[in-house]
Design a protein around this nucleic acid. Structure first.
Lengths: 342, 342
DNA sequence: GCCTTCTGGTAGAACGATTAGGCACAATAT
DNA sequence: ATATTGTGCCTAATCGTTCTACCAGAAGGC
């Protein structure tokens, strides 16, 4: 009467053995109709709920998955989470999320906690400066792991964005419009992704003979973007276009221009990256590189399921292409530089 | 080498028995310095992490806590999560988050999963239209539960915001500035909170003899706010001020005004609710009701810890007061209504 | 009648930890 | 020398479930 019902309680009530109850509830083994009905009736009567921890312990199977993310507040990440959860819950998994806030120490504690509590798989945006020890930890415990966005370990599966390709497209778009003084802005908080994005920018700059370009450092948030824009204009008044590491920085830069009495698009062109919700409704609407977060989320979930199914297969890398969405923050330069006079 | 390390692995490596390792790691029992060192060294070397499921099974203790939230994308919620996690992780608990997206069916599955997977406590923003069955489920399994924001069950502990007090302050602020045609806008997606907030608005409207007021329905996001603002102005051009159900709606309304060539603050006053990060950096910066999400999070965590410590105490309700932050979207009406012509 | 095969179930070990109880051995008391 | 106490560690049982046997009885083939 007191205490929660277990297999033993149900077995006693139904007048059968414990394994029989287990087999009935799991639909395995050879059981007659009669016994099956008896057991099911008893289980229902007692409001029996299986203890999946005990089950996981014995069988080794584990349908709890951890999502270790660097910044839950980021709306883009939040949308990815939706996509992931949709697919995994449909497959009978449970997804629990933790936010590292890009703190390697916190992250290490959280990874330990995930292992302690027996997660069967991990989706992971590794925090900045994640120590080798954290990777070793997962490796020694043999937890199927897929990194997301930050591709830091070749031995792990990865799902991400073709960053270099994206910024290359952004830079090409600006060059096509006639811009030559194109600066790369922001993203120091996410060095791995930033490195790739800068690579795409640099490649196009040199391909099109626009010089080495200029990398202007700042963080990834809106305020940092505003400050950086102001400082950049003061140092280099001749800049005509910006490739930004992310939409937040781009929106900040756009805002700073407005406050200086300048018009984004007309006076200075800006391309963002991510296509967050605010990008479309900002004033003016932001030209940006768009990736579908839901699609990314589904890819991510699928990659983990594949890895769980076959732990021996070689590491997989799956990257989505970002699509240029032209809105109002890009236009030909106000004083177009004469490329081919005549 | 392969397979995760267990107590047995560590015991073998250290040349002692399994219980000895357990006692060393838990700090119980009588163990000599020598053995302790040996064991600790072995554990570290093997990256040993205890399996808390096995431990919980034997000892009955459970330090996993679930946070069931209705909308993870909401930056306010995300900040609350931070506060909660800080406190609970410091107390040795692990917090895992799931997002119901306000879908009662999804929520029910998630609650069931939490029970099966043996969560020791629950923080919960109940989804809209949560059926009684979900509450019963938690009650019968005796899981310590604290509701957050939506106070739907008197028998459960609750942490939230003094909503009516907040909108009352907002409405008073507008009335003090000289506004009389004050409309309440938005929030149909969160009926429980909205009802309270509307109560505060109505109370002040009638107290100050400003009539019954007007409730204008729309959802809680920025786009909805924009559309609603446009429609509202068309239907009621004489409106001079808005009390908004949340900052997102308020920002949307502000944006819509700008697009119509009107100036928020000068042509129409707007007060938001929540003081999300964007409120301060928006153009123009938003006047709003501010609540510290971190503080709220800590309160929430504390409430759950108290409940876990003493499951028999009567239900507790803890509500935080929202503070009016005046920025640039509120000002005296452009054509002040003559209250006391003189 | 004896051997095989099939059916429907049971017994017992195992998963990885904790907990209670017990057993050597040394130090001290009688 | 014997009894007493403490120290330091180990053996065995246990949590709820699943998995690998194995067993009893019936049916069928020779």
């Amino acid at each position: 009467m007191s205490g929660k019902p277990t297999l033993a309680t149900v077995a006693e009530k139904a007048g059968v053995s414990v394994p029989t109850v287990s087999q009935v509830l799991r639909g395995t083994g050879r059981i007659s109709e009669q016994t099956r009905d008896k057991v099911l009736k008893a289980a229902q009567l007692l409001h029996y709920v299986p203890d999946s921890r005990a089950a996981a312990m014995r069988s080794g199977e584990n349908r709890e998955i951890g999502f270790v993310i660097n910044q839950l507040m980021n709306p883009f990440n939040a949308e990815v989470v939706s996509g992931v959860v949709d697919l995994l819950e449909a497959e009978g998994y449970m997804v629990s999320i933790v936010d590292t806030r890009d703190d390697a120490d916190r992250q290490d504690r959280q990874l330990q906690a995930f292992i302690r509590h027996g997660r069967g798989g991990l989706l992971w945006v590794p925090a900045m400066n994640t120590p080798d020890a954290s990777f070793d930890l997962l490796a020694t415990h043999g937890i199927p792991t897929v990194t997301f966005l930050r591709h830091v370990r070749p031995e792990l599966d990865h799902v991400g964005i073709r960053n270099a390709e994206g910024t290359a497209a952004a830079t090409n778009h600006l060059a096509d419009l006639g811009h030559c003084r194109i600066v790369y802005l922001g993203g120091t908080g996410m060095p791995i992704v930033r490195r790739e994005r800068i690579r795409g920018y640099r490649k196009v700059m040199s391909e099109r003979g626009l010089g080495p370009g200029l990398i202007w450092d700042c963080e990834g948030d809106k305020l940092a973007g505003m400050d950086a824009m102001t400082a950049l204009l003061q140092a280099h008044p001749d800049v005509t276009a910006l490739v930004c590491n992310g939409d937040m920085v781009a929106l900040g830069a756009s805002l700073a221009l407005l406050r200086l009495g300048l018009q984004p698009g007309r006076d200075l062109s800006i391309v963002g990256f991510d296509d967050i919700q605010d990008a479309a409704v900002a004033t003016p609407p932001l030209t940006t590189m768009s990736v579908s977060p839901q699609k990314l989320g589904r890819r991510l979930a699928r990659a983990l399921l594949d890895r769980i199914e076959d732990p021996t297969m070689p590491p997989t890398v799956s990257e989505l292409t970002a699509r240029l969405v032209v809105r109002d923050t890009t236009a030909p330069p106000a004083r177009p530089v004469q490329q081919k006079p005549g």
